[in-house]
Design a protein around this nucleic acid. Structure first.
Lengths: 207, 207
DNA sequence: CCCTGAATTGGGACTATTGTCAATATTGAA
DNA sequence: TTCAATATTGACAATAGTCCCAATTCAGGG
């Protein structure tokens, strides 16, 4: 959107890009260790660059966190995409379940994802993207009853977000992820029985 | 949770509580004027108290913003509650539409609401509360097909949040609020035709 | 191959803001 | 009036974010 350093053109520039990766990697480590009290000072110390350099790559502290989260989310999405699951509904169920279980297992990550909702560009990038792909194929295969219009996408993404939120708040039950996945499938037009079955299957094989 | 000064016991203490209201009021003014670049210094200057006093009432800057947002949301909810609308479905449609239109009209407010999602206690308080009331009556009147279980609540709240988000990002259409309301009603079990009608009615009378 | 100039990145001192704390002032009750 | 509890204050420490200058890199022309 704003800058998005695309396609480093020269090999020199490409080498410079390493600094950004250093910062993101350092951010990930610091975030993992100190949870949410992440400090720019910590990160630059860990990455072994100066304070000023940090702001050459990120507008503010949150933008680094966002980058870390995006990388994390992408790793998850990539893992989901590697599975050769044909049925879009089943793929959706598995990807969503994977995300919810990950959120439950790693609270820091979950909180970061939640914060992303309140950020300008965040999340339209990660969460939605990996959902949109599944949603697009559904109707073509007669799996879902509606195309992935904006509102449907909002609703499914919103369900995931609010479910993560519920888990972070500790107001969840053991079957919260499964119920959320069931809801998501039903929202997409999968009938009740099948939605239950797919969600249960995903919960069994991933949980 | 932590302290929560509840029920001022003496009239003197009650008088002291005025400081908090001063701060929230000042926060509202500053927020309205300087948008998001709100500063604690600005607020304490506006409220005419010292820096230290601020932190007697709020753990950090965001907590004040949260309080301001909560007050705002509550005002909205109160306005909705005053209307003598019997039908829970219609009431839900109107309240939700009101919120979405408000978000569209006041971007600062919308952004603040979005940030609330990523905060510890925020939002479970405001958005959910005013929805829950409507959701609870629906089944009793045979209006909705399901009780307000956690997942349903998550899904409706999530839809509202993501719709606000879409509007803030500028990726909305003129009929985005109406479509979101329709979706919300359908999620609650209202049939398609009726959902359309109620959403349209709400859009007409409030827009 | 080596200059040169433009452009980009790195550095770190500096400013601004947030958040802490111990001392002080105010309040309510006895 | 005195005491205990609580609110207020402003100086202080920690952290975020800015800015300008030095170092590096690249392209192009001797």
């Amino acid at each position: 959107m704003t800058e998005g350093r695309r396609e480093p053109r020269t090999r020199g520039h490409r080498k410079k890009e390493r600094t950004r990766r250093q910062l993101v990697a350092a951010g990930l480590r610091v975030l993992a260790e100190k949870g949410h009290g992440l400090t720019v000072s910590d990160v630059v110390a860990e990455a072994d660059v100066s304070n000023g350099t940090f702001y050459n790559y990120f507008a503010d502290r949150d933008e680094l966190i966002e980058a870390v989260a995006e990388q994390s989310a992408m790793a998850l999405a990539a893992a989901a995409a590697e599975e050769p699951v044909e049925d879009p509904a089943r793929r959706f169920a598995r990807a969503t379940m994977r995300m919810l279980l990950h959120a439950r297992a790693d609270e820091t990550w979950a909180r970061v994802m939640l914060r992303l909702v309140g950020r300008p560009g965040g999340m339209g990038v990660d969460l939605s993207r990996y959902l949109r792909e599944d949603l697009a194929e559904g109707p073509a295969q007669g799996r879902f009853d509606a195309g992935p219009d904006d509102t449907t996408l909002d609703q499914v993404a919103g369900l995931v977000i609010m479910t993560i939120r519920r888990m972070v708040e500790g107001q969840d039950w053991p079957d919260t992820p499964q119920r959320a996945v069931t809801r998501g499938l039903r929202t997409l037009g999968v009938d009740a029985a099948e939605a239950e079955a797919l969600a249960a299957e995903a919960a069994d094989s991933l949980g």
